[in-house]
Design a binder for these strands. Structure first.
Length: 463
RNA sequence: GGUCCCAUCGUCUAGUGGUUAGGACGCCGGCCUCUCACGCCGGUAACCCGGGUUCGAAUCCCGGUGGGAUCACCA
């Protein structure tokens, strides 16, 4: 049994978008699952639109997602000699031929066909002319006039295409560069790719590619065409649907594991399971349960999954991912024990790391911003005494633990004849400046005794 | 328009001839409770339509409708 070799071939004409990330993921997971190989190939033959920045952005996004490759990145433009060799081979074997028709002639040809109600195809004018290489000529593949080419797709099943529907398409441009379908087949062939999972917008290219494989006398790879990801309006995902690029989700505070979990789950299933760790995915992913219908991208579901992944991680795992979000708010924190405690108190109440950073601000500020409405409501003159008392009692504590704090509050509740709810809220406002925060005890413990006392004193004395 | 693909709650999906059609997100209640959350409990909501096949169809077949993809010297 030959090892599985998959690939991801992005065009460097923009950032890595959600849809691309998903097909990369499918290929990567399948390679990892089968202990095969995953190849990265940059399809940069569209020189006008390809940029170095895009290459960097794509590599960066893949790295963030934790998708690594065993081979590459290859650059298609650097493989021209190989493509040329195969094109020449095709001409020599009679499977392809030179054509001197100009674009204008072809246009006229198509117009005429259209006018007659026929398919706008190249009419094969140069097919038997036996032309040889000359400036301005292109190379076309000689496609069968009859019969069918069947794509045996592992997600779509068998799909038959009439060969008569296909014209002799160009495989080498007049400037000598190879066309997409040729370059893809030659690259996949020479890189040993035997499993191709890609978007179903490529399904219609597949019979053409199969014809090239056959003309080359090569074995066919396994094809799997997965449905596209749609936007909320059921149209193919595009800029107007908001964030598409993977890195934008990183900036919004999504965890790579959550993005991966969501993306894979959109179009693949494992019974009723919704939450998957990276390990789960590698262990359980298969080609059999890929869905056949297009799926809409649903941010709220990814957000819910993100919250679950945040809860499932340890503070230490979250630290490095969390710090940049704090930094974005102007907080220069360290990935230390304090931050880990901060994270721990915020884990169950954060949907994203961005939320978490916002909620964590008060921890890192000596003097948290005061919500005046909250202050007016809870930091009343009567409460000042209670707060001062609390500060004194907490300061006197020799062991700063939850049980110790509990006894302090118990005493205060008795002294002031208040329920815990009545003292908790003023305390919360005094310490955080707002009415919303983690639980009192976990928060005070994370803050430490001195910091806690200091904060209570300052606000108790303000007014 | 030609060709091709697709069709279960609003969304992601489970289901592979016999289920009260299950789960998740969202939404709505409730419980828990020091706020907000988490968590827990409950509710809402679906087999696109029409024909077949069959004792029996969400499941199989055909047609329709709807959505999508693609028709380049782009990838």
């Amino acid at each position: 049994m030959k090892p599985v070799v998959t690939r991801f071939p992005p065009s460097p004409t923009g950032f890595l978008h959600i849809g691309g990330a998903r097909t990369a993921l499918f290929n990567w997971l399948y390679a990892r699952k089968t202990r095969g190989k995953f190849v990265l190939r940059i399809e940069d033959t569209d020189v006008d639109r390809s940029t170095r920045e895009s290459v960097d952005a794509i590599l960066d996004a893949l790295a963030w997602l934790g998708i690594d490759w065993d081979d590459g990145p290859y650059f298609q433009t650097q493989r021209k000699e190989i493509h040329d060799r195969y094109i020449d081979k095709l001409v020599a074997s009679g499977h392809a031929y030179y054509c001197s028709c100009t674009p204008e002639e072809i246009d006229a040809m198509r117009e005429k066909a259209r006018a007659q109600g026929l398919k706008p195809m190249y009419n094969g004018k140069c097919r038997e002319r036996g032309l040889s290489k000359a400036p301005g000529t292109v190379v076309r593949l000689k496609t069968p006039d009859s019969g069918v080419t069947v794509v045996n797709d592992i997600v779509k099943g068998n799909t038959a295409f009439q060969n008569a529907e296909m014209d002799d398409f160009i495989i080498r441009r007049s400037d000598g560069s190879p066309m997409y379908n040729l370059a893809v087949v030659v690259d996949d062939l020479t890189m040993g790719i035997n499993t191709i999972i890609r978007g179903d917008d490529h399904l219609i290219n597949t019979p053409k590619q199969i014809l090239i494989y056959q003309a080359l006398g090569a074995d066919l790879p396994v094809f799997g065409h997965v449905p596209m990801v749609l936007g909320p309006d059921k149209a193919r995902l595009s800029k107007r649907h908001g964030a598409m690029s993977v890195s934008e989700y990183r900036d919004m505070g999504y965890l790579p594991d959550a993005v991966i979990n969501y993306l894979v789950r959109l179009g693949w299933s494992h019974g009723d399971q919704e939450f998957f760790t990276r390990r789960d995915l590698i262990e359980k992913f298969d080609l059999e349960h890929l869905g056949r219908s297009a799926g809409m991208f649903d941010l709220s579901k990814m957000t819910a999954l993100n919250a679950k992944h945040i809860q499932a991680k340890t503070p230490a795992e979250l630290g490095p991912l969390f710090l940049p979000h704090l930094q974005h708010l102007g907080i220069d924190a360290a990935d230390d024990g304090f931050t880990h405690q901060v994270i721990e108190t915020l884990q169950p109440r954060s949907k994203t790391l961005k939320d978490m950073a916002r909620a964590a601000r008060f921890y890192y500020m000596d003097e948290p911003e005061m919500d005046e409405k909250a202050a007016a409501k809870f930091l009343t003159p009567e409460m000042a005494d209670m707060l001062n008392q609390a500060a004194d009692d907490i300061e006197a504590l020799s062991d700063y633990t939850q049980p110790a704090l509990e006894s302090v509050f118990k005493k205060i509740m008795a002294d002031f004849n208040l329920g815990f709810g009545k003292i908790a809220q003023p305390l919360r406002v005094a310490i955080t400046g707002t009415t919303v925060s983690p639980g009192i005890f976990e928060m005070l413990l994370a803050l430490g005794k001195d910091n806690t006392v200091q904060r209570i004193r300052r606000t108790a004395g303000r007014r």
